[in-house]
Structures are given as structure tokens and as C-alpha cells.
């Protein structure tokens, strides 16, 4: 009996325990990310007593100004605006192209879709973001400079680079959504004498709407969180962009650059952690939005 007990422990409980621990670890890591980023990110407001509203809504970022110059001030509205503009711009360019590709893969030529487009999308995903940034710097910036004058580094450059980076995300999720449409819908439309394009534009795309929307939100989330590629091309100036060709900064770009230049636990450093917390909260927001879209899609 004793030996049997030992064998049973070896054959079942050890493995089961291990796998439960792994599951538990995921929860622990997630909670500790939230806990540590939040505790560090809140110290600007709790320890340094900096007002949250001023942090969120002011456009004045003067972390190194002394009290005589009215500083230091940690308003991050410039960076929020920069992040929102650059990611919205990227989604605006990417979405129509992604939907076109998704339709092409499923209706126009599934063969070329699986043999060429899908592998191409996988490669686009695989290319590291620093490489996107580097090509942006060496190819896109000189191009923009010669076309529009100025310095080339701009909001527009950020938008273009990001729109390529998020294209595969939106495409693959839209394509899944389109593939999931019951074939009966399509046949019913053809059966009424509709052309392929009429079927696609009036039946397929509307039916896949919530799936496509999920792809767009995921693309937006990816664009919002991307740091290095954007930082390399957007110019990183502390001001709101004057136009598409103007320079600006984003939450991620300023975090990337300033974290190395500040001393841990100083007020300035704490302000950076508050921005990290803000990014964390925004990524929660995206999760919530995606869940809502998913639920509404199910109801219908």
C-alpha cells in the first residue's frame, strides 16, 4: 500500500501540482505588474502631491524647471495627444487596406491568399520594430524631406511606419471574421443574382462588422503601445504637432528616452512611472472595449 501511494503521487499529483502552479504564476505575474506599476505610478500624486487633473490635462511639461520658473510641471497632455493622433492616423490608413486584403484572401483568390498574402503578413509581423524604425529613419524621412521640405521627422512619418506595423493584425482578424460568415448568406445573395462585389459590400462586410471592429481595436492598441519605431521617427519635440508634418512626442517615446536620464524615486522619475501606469490603464480600456464588441457580436 505504501509503495502504491508513492507511485500514485509520482504518477498524478506531482504533475498536476506543477501545472496548477504554472497557471497560478500567470495570475501572480499579472497582479504584480498591476501592483508594482500602480504603486510606483501613484507616488507622484500621493507622495509628491501633484494634482492628477494637472498631470492629465495640462500641456506644460517642464520637469527640470525650478520653482522660480514656475516649475517643475508634469502635464502630459501633449504626449496623450501625440499617442492618440499617431495611432488613430495609423488605423485610418491601415483599416481600408486590411479589409481589402481580407476580402481578397477569402473571395477573389484564396489560392494567392494562402500562398502569398498570408506568408507576407506573417513576415510583416515578424520584422522587429527597431527595423521598422530604422528603415523609417533612413528611407522614409529623407523621402518626406524631399517631398515636403522641413526635417522629415514628423507625425506623418510615425503614422506611416505604424500603419505598416499594424496592418497584419487588422488583416488577419478581419479575414477570420469574414471566413466565419455562413456560406448560406453568400449563396443566398448570389442566388438573387447579385454580383460578387455587391455580395461582398452589402452582405459580407456588414456581417463581419464586429470581427473587423475587434481587429481595428487590437491594431489601435498595438499602435498605442508601440515605443521604439515611433520614437525613432516622430521627432520627439515637446509640443503639440502643428500639422501632419510637425514633430511631437508620444507617451511611449518620452518614457523610452527619459527613463535613463532620471534618478529613481525623484519627482521627475515618478512622473514617468505615472505615464507607465496611464499606458497600463489604457491597455485595460482596450480589453474592455474588445470584450464589449465581442459580446454585442454574440447577441446578434
Amino acid at each position: 500500500m505504501e509503495r502504491k501511494q508513492i507511485a500514485r503521487i509520482k504518477n498524478e499529483y506531482l504533475g498536476k501540482t506543477y501545472s496548477i502552479i504554472c497557471g497560478l504564476l500567470i495570475v501572480i505575474i499579472t497582479l504584480s505588474i498591476i501592483f508594482f506599476i500602480a504603486s510606483q505610478g501613484l507616488s507622484l500624486f500621493i507622495k509628491n502631491h501633484y494634482p492628477i487633473s494637472k498631470f492629465l490635462f495640462s500641456t506644460i511639461w517642464k520637469p527640470d524647471a525650478g520653482p522660480e520658473a514656475g516649475g517643475p510641471q508634469y502635464g502630459v497632455m501633449i504626449f496623450i495627444t501625440g499617442s492618440v493622433l499617431v495611432s488613430l492616423g495609423a488605423v485610418l490608413i491601415s483599416t481600408p487596406v486590411a479589409i481589402a486584403l481580407a476580402i481578397f484572401m477569402n473571395f477573389i483568390s484564396p489560392k494567392l491568399g494562402t500562398r502569398v498574402l498570408q506568408p507576407a503578413m506573417e513576415l510583416f509581423v515578424g520584422i522587429p520594430s527597431v527595423v521598422y524604425g530604422w528603415v523609417g529613419v533612413t528611407l522614409l524621412i529623407p523621402l518626406l524631406k524631399s517631398m515636403f521640405g522641413g526635417i522629415g521627422f514628423s507625425l506623418l512619418a510615425g503614422i506611416i511606419v505604424l500603419s505598416i506595423m499594424i496592418l497584419p493584425t487588422i488583416t488577419s482578424i478581419s479575414s477570420d471574421a469574414i471566413r466565419a460568415i455562413p456560406i448560406e448568406y453568400v449563396e443566398a445573395s448570389y442566388g438573387l443574382g447579385a454580383t460578387r462585389w455587391q455580395t461582398i459590400s452589402r452582405v459580407v462586410v456588414p456581417a463581419a462588422k464586429s470581427g473587423i471592429l475587434t481587429g481595428v481595436v487590437l491594431g489601435l492598441a498595438r499602435a498605442f503601445g508601440e515605443a521604439l519605431a515611433v520614437q525613432m521617427v516622430i521627432g520627439n519635440s515637446i509640443n503639440l504637432p502643428k500639422s501632419l508634418l510637425g514633430t511631437t512626442s508620444t507617451l511611449t517615446s518620452i518614457l523610452t528616452m527619459d527613463m535613463a536620464n532620471t534618478v529613481f524615486k525623484t519627482e521627475w522619475n515618478n512622473a514617468l512611472w505615472s505615464m507607465a501606469l496611464l499606458l497600463l490603464l489604457i491597455s485595460f480600456l482596450f480589453i474592455v472595449v474588445i470584450r464589449i464588441i465581442g459580446r454585442r457580436g454574440e447577441v446578434k
Partner: peptide, 21 residues
């Protein structure tokens, strides 16, 4: 929910968590 949360974190935020912890 944890997996979904972790998967959607921007990598710079993960990097900063690593820096802190």
C-alpha cells in the same frame, strides 16, 4: 483574464516592470 491582460501590455511597460522588480 490575466493572460489577456498580459498579452495586451505594451512591451515598454513590461520592460519598465522588469526594471522596477
Amino acid at each position: 483574464l490575466s493572460i489577456e491582460t498580459m498579452a495586451s501590455l505594451p512591451s515598454i511597460v513590461v520592460g519598465l516592470f522588469g526594471l522596477l522588480v
